[in-house]
Design a protein around this nucleic acid. Structure first.
Lengths: 223, 223
DNA sequence: ATATTTTTTTAAGCTTACTTAAATTAAAAA
DNA sequence: TTTTTAATTTAAGTAAGCTTAAAAAAATAT
């Protein structure tokens, strides 16, 4: 399909996509504007333009919603982003906190042709290094419904880490030094609900995480 | 050093760099404009802007010349371009005629950090798949003075292919099917100067090339 | 040397992607 | 319900990177 959009509009579309999925965040202009570091006025303006191009559905004072072709575009960019992250990590050895930054740029100037080559080289991977699903070339994406953040877990159950969300060094350094990787097994010992903390046991060690970390570690039941 | 320039200005700077080296081509606005597919007016305008940023030296009605910092910028982009070409060819298996097209895009959104990672992965390669030198991280570049196009070669001498210039499929298909690669040995049998043709012998086969191809195959004495 | 052609430059205008400031509408609080 | 606050939209303006058209300068031909 190959994107024709500019970098600015690609990032705009991408942000709407993420906010439509991510709970808690609305897709009104101000919300998108804040994320992208532009003014509300600029976001409204962009909304009007993308609406003309039929990439979003937009009525004044309403939330923004991707159209079918807008969603296809978002998934095409997301595919490139996650293929690059996987490639940069697995092949070039970039750290978890470095891959997002670089993929964020490369995704915009990557042809469908090149994306396919990267995909082939990696053996058609299902997920990126964070555990996020890589959209397929046909614009489908497999959602992992059974995955949820650590601080929502019930106590005394065995889980597997399914996803590590984010891009800051501190978080991934913590995960690394405590052997928390995508695929790691762990046990949830206790939920300190009032203090928003979770005690887990991983690789023989007990750790107490506050929700700053625990809401970015996604897990699923380990069967 | 990390470029701050836009894609348009990076391509402009790059073109001046190539034209300053490449014999026959001048660096006046019209020449650059033609190469980039923009109008003379746009080229003059860009010249004025880049001159303000001290990236080129420019006086009205004169040829454009890169400043020291403009040249550093050009070499930084060229480094990324040639590292990508090498990587795409050697690692992802893209064909000779495909790598330029992709590198032409990626070079603009590649951080110095990532360029270094690619360089390390490839083992600090001296040349790209065309045989062109890859600029060093410090902005130096080793010029191969002894290399020249096939149609300038003296007869009955043994040569080595040092460079294959261009990006069209037809040329590289021809080279491939006749075993003409960077590093191939060949003999020049005869120069048909009037008809601008060169007869060579490579891998046991005799070939007659017209200057469309022979001026893009660079050779050097095989010692 | 003069006339013609070509190139370069300037000027005015367009689109994209922003900005700030003011006006409008919607949402929340009193 | 009315007032206040917050978000959204419109309006006007900017910079980049182009365009076409006209003017100016340089190069070429006669």
């Amino acid at each position: 399909m190959q994107n024709t959009g500019s970098i600015a509009s690609e990032n705009f579309i991408k942000t709407i996509y993420h906010f439509q999925l991510g709970a808690g965040k609305d897709t009104r202009p101000g919300s998108i504007a804040k994320e992208l570091g532009i003014t509300n006025a600029a976001a409204t303006d962009m909304a009007r333009k993308l609406s003309q191009k039929k990439l979003i559905e937009y009525e004044k004072y309403k939330a923004l919603k991707l159209s079918k072709s807008g969603e296809r575009m978002a998934l095409n960019i997301l595919r490139k982003h996650r293929l690059w992250e996987t490639f940069l990590h697995q092949v070039l050895g970039l750290s978890m906190h470095e891959i997002h930054r670089e993929a964020e740029l490369l995704e915009h100037l990557t042809s469908d042709f090149l994306a396919d080559k990267i995909n082939d080289y990696l053996g058609n991977p299902a997920t990126d290094p964070h555990g996020d699903p890589i959209p397929n070339v046909d614009g489908t994406i497999s959602m992992d419904e059974k995955s949820f953040p650590l601080h929502e877990a019930s106590v005394d159950q065995r889980y597997m880490v399914s996803r590590l969300s984010g891009s800051d060094k501190e978080f991934f350094d913590f995960c690394h030094s405590n052997k928390i990787f995508v695929g790691s097994k762990l046990n949830v010992n206790k939920q300190y609900s009032n203090n928003k903390m979770t005690e887990i046991e991983v690789d023989g060690a007990r750790l107490i995480l506050n929700d700053n970390f625990s809401n970015r570690i996604y897990i699923k039941k380990d069967n």
